[in-house]
């Protein structure tokens, strides 16, 4: 059985490394993008992604705009996206939800909480990727 593939989009290499380390130990296959633009390119070119973890404040294309662009494409409507950010402003959370994000985690995150959230939401993404 293939491991669910998780895309982490963050301009911080340290965060990408931490997420990769945590999720790899939990049995996920993790791929990385360093900003929203690169993340969008990967999402549109790879159909086997089960879930996206996405930062908000990033160069080139920020996370909220990226989610809005991705979710405007019906083929990505079911792809779970969870924002992983230092931001906790309610207006931003509402914007992400309106765009179609499935969750919001405020950094710094706890490893077990990240794994539980990804495990819970990745199932829907796996089913979409299998279609």
């Amino acid at each position: 059985m293939n491991q669910p593939r998780i895309l982490i989009i963050d301009d911080s290499k340290a965060i990408r490394l931490a997420v990769r380390s945590t999720l790899s130990r939990a049995g996920f296959d993790v791929i990385e993008a360093r900003d929203g633009e690169q993340g969008r390119e990967i999402i549109t070119s790879q159909s086997d992604i089960s879930l996206v973890l996405c930062d908000v404040n990033m160069p080139r294309l920020n996370g909220l705009s990226m989610v809005e662009l991705i979710k405007a494409d019906p083929s990505h409507a079911e792809l779970p996206v969870v924002m992983l950010t230092t931001e906790g402003e309610p207006a931003m959370v509402r914007r992400a939800r309106a765009a179609g994000a499935r969750g919001w985690i405020v950094k710094p995150f706890k490893d077990d909480v990240l794994v539980a959230t990804v495990r819970r939401l990745a199932q829907a993404g796996c089913e979409q990727a299998a279609k």
């Binding site: 906790g88 919001w104 405020v106 950094k107």
Partner: peptide
């Protein structure tokens, strides 16, 4: 005054 989400918080929509 606005009550923001805090570090470690998880919101599932």
């Amino acid at each position: 005054s606005v009550a923001p989400s805090e570090s470690g918080d998880v919101i599932i929509f």
